[in-house]
Each structure stands twice: as structure tokens, then as C-alpha cells.
Design a protein around this nucleic acid. Structure first.
Length: 293
DNA sequence: AAGCGAACCTGGCTGC
DNA sequence: TGCAGCCAGGTTCGCT
């Protein structure tokens, strides 16, 4: 469940379990996910108190008392669930109609509060690693990341200057994590629809000749914030069988205007368009050819 | 330099 | 029912 709103939803679910608690035991069930785990992964985690659980773009960052940061990325198919450690395991779960899919449980963190968090990731595009807090910002993983879309820097002026002279389509420019960090395929499609902008429009066309932002740039900045905030309020989007950390489902997918809505009528007032799917740089783009220009 | 396709993996769905 | 083919929320590498 991996764009910014889903990662933020995960953070909200894990923070009460992790913050202020001690990691008592770590089960690392394979040597690697997307990358190998550090050799000393377990020993650097066990016995550590988690100070805070934060988020940067699509990365979860658990600050440890040792000064290390546990960096976690969900990739395409990663998810966390919270379970009771002590009791249960016994019959209780027997009533649940759905058998838990534990096949791809790769990491389990046990906490002093009697709970455990389980990381499951069928495709293994996610990863976990440890980086000292002091060197985090300089690390290659973060040094080239763009701005936080929900921070105070995203506005028309930022977009017009970041996109100036770019011929690349808006779709690709918005997916570029080096400009804005945290948007993915769903929310880029949704934001462009809200702004009435074509995914194919050259990114550079949001900048006026004098370098100042066009009205479209201002609108786009605003709807990006709106769509992310709306999605976070909804607990993110749930595709396929993914769930939040407590097993409940996000429901923003019921609000999609264009994503995964090919052949559906456009919902914009007065628009009679039909949503189309196309491929841009290898990924599906959904848009309304009638009202997005 | 920018921009595109391919690669990394597994699983679910569609259509023959 | 079986199986091939396509598709999936991300990121990075390597080739024009």
C-alpha cells in the first residue's frame, strides 16, 4: 500500500505500538528483501527504545535511542500488521473466516508492550535498513529527494520553477521523486484530473515567460495537497487484499475519479467524457480526454 | 541530459 | 481445468 497517504496511514497505525517502547526481539526470516539486510540488523535493533516513528516521502523512519534510524519502505506490496504477542495464538483466531496470509511474513518486531508488528511483502520490492541519524540527510537515499507535498513549500511558484523548460509530460514530472517526494501513480492521476490538466501536457507549460507561475500551476499545487489530505482522512486506498495495520481497509478507492476507472463516465459537472487508460513511460495513466487539457 | 524501456518479484485476473 | 499472458500502489539501471 505504498503512496504517501498509505504510508502515513501505516505510520498512524504503528506509532502507538512503537513509540516509547522497547524492541525486545527481532525475527528476520530471510537475508534480503529488495536489498540485503545489514549484517548486524538484529543486534542493532534488539534492546532499543523507539523514540519516534516519522515519515519522509514514502519512507517510514523509526528513531532509536542508539542514534540509528530504522528505515522502512513498503515497495509495491509491503504491509504491516499489529498482533498481540503474549496470549492469543490459541483458538481465538479460529473464528476468523479468513486465514491469515503469513506466507510472505519476512520480519517480526516484538515489543515490550506485548505487541508485535509483522512485515509482509509478497513481491519484496520493499526493504529495511539502519542508518545513523547524523548521516541520514546526506545518505544517497534521501539527499536527492524532493520536497514534501504536504509541507509548506509546495505552491505554484515552486512548481513553475521546478518544471520550467521541461518538455517531459506532467505525469512523469509529478512522479519524479526528486522534485516532489511521495506522489505515486494513483494520486498523480487523481490530482491531474482535479486540476483539469492533461497528463500529456509538457511540464514546462505551467511557467510563464517571465518565470512566474500560471494559474494552472497554482491550481495544481492546491489539488495535490487536497487529494493527499482527502486520502489520508480516508485511511488511504485499498487495492487487492491490502489492509491497514489493524486489518481495516482504507476507503479512498471508492472516491477515485479516474484511477482504475477506464470506460467509466467522467464525474466532472457537465462533462460527458469517458475515462481512458493509456501508457506513459511504462505505467498506466487514467484521464478524461474531454476535460483535461 | 533527458527520457524511455527493462529489470527486480509474486500473485491475481482474463481469455482461450 | 489449465495455462499463457497481462497487469499491479515503486525504484533504479542502462541504453538511446
Amino acid at each position: 500500500m505504498p503512496e504517501l497517504p498509505e504510508v502515513e496511514t501505516v505510520r498512524n497505525g504503528l506509532a502507538p505500538v512503537m513509540e516509547g517502547d522497547v524492541i525486545t526481539r527481532v525475527e528476520q526470516r530471510r537475508p534480503d528483501l529488495r536489498f540485503p539486510f545489514p549484517d548486524d540488523f538484529r543486534t542493532r535493533l534488539e534492546g532499543q527504545t523507539v523514540a519516534t516513528l516519522g515519515r519522509r516521502a514514502k519512507y517510514l523512519l523509526a528513531d532509536l535511542a542508539s542514534g540509528d534510524v530504522l528505515v522502512m519502505h513498503l515497495g509495491m506490496s509491503g504491509s504491516f500488521r499489529v498482533e498481540e504477542d503474549a496470549a492469543s495464538e490459541t483458538p481465538g483466531d479460529f473464528h476468523h473466516p479468513k486465514t491469515k496470509n503469513t506466507k510472505h511474513d519476512h520480519v517480526v518486531l516484538h515489543f515490550s508492550n506485548g505487541k508485535r508488528i509483522v512485515y509482509n511483502d509478497p513481491r519484496r520490492f520493499g526493504f529495511m535498513t539502519l542508518i545513523p541519524r547524523a548521516t541520514l540527510d546526506a545518505h544517497a537515499m534521501f539527499s536527492k529527494l524532493g520536497i514534501e507535498p504536504l509541507g509548506n513549500r509546495l505552491d505554484g511558484t515552486f512548481l513553475s520553477s521546478a518544471f520550467a523548460n521541461k518538455k517531459t509530460p506532467l505525469k512523469a514530472a509529478l512522479l519524479d521523486q526528486g522534485i516532489i517526494a511521495g506522489l505515486g501513480n494513483i494520486y498523480v492521476c487523481e490530482a491531474l484530473w482535479r486540476a483539469g490538466l492533461s497528463p500529456k501536457r509538457a511540464a514546462g507549460t505551467l511557467t510563464r515567460k517571465d518565470g512566474r507561475p500560471t494559474a494552472r500551476a497554482e491550481t495544481l499545487a492546491q489539488v495535490i495537497r487536497d487529494v493527499l489530505n482527502d486520502a489520508i482522512k480516508a485511511g488511504g486506498s485499498t487495492l487487492r487484499d491490502h489492509a491497514q495495520t489493524d486489518g481495516s481497509l482504507g476507503y479512498f478507492q471508492h472516491t477515485f475519479a479516474v484511477y482504475d476507472q477506464e470506460h467509466e463516465p467522467c464525474h466532472r459537472d457537465g462533462c460527458r467524457g469517458i475515462i481512458e487508460r493509456m501508457t506513459q513511460s511504462g505505467r498506466s495513466t487514467f484521464h478524461c480526454p474531454q476535460c483535461q487539457h
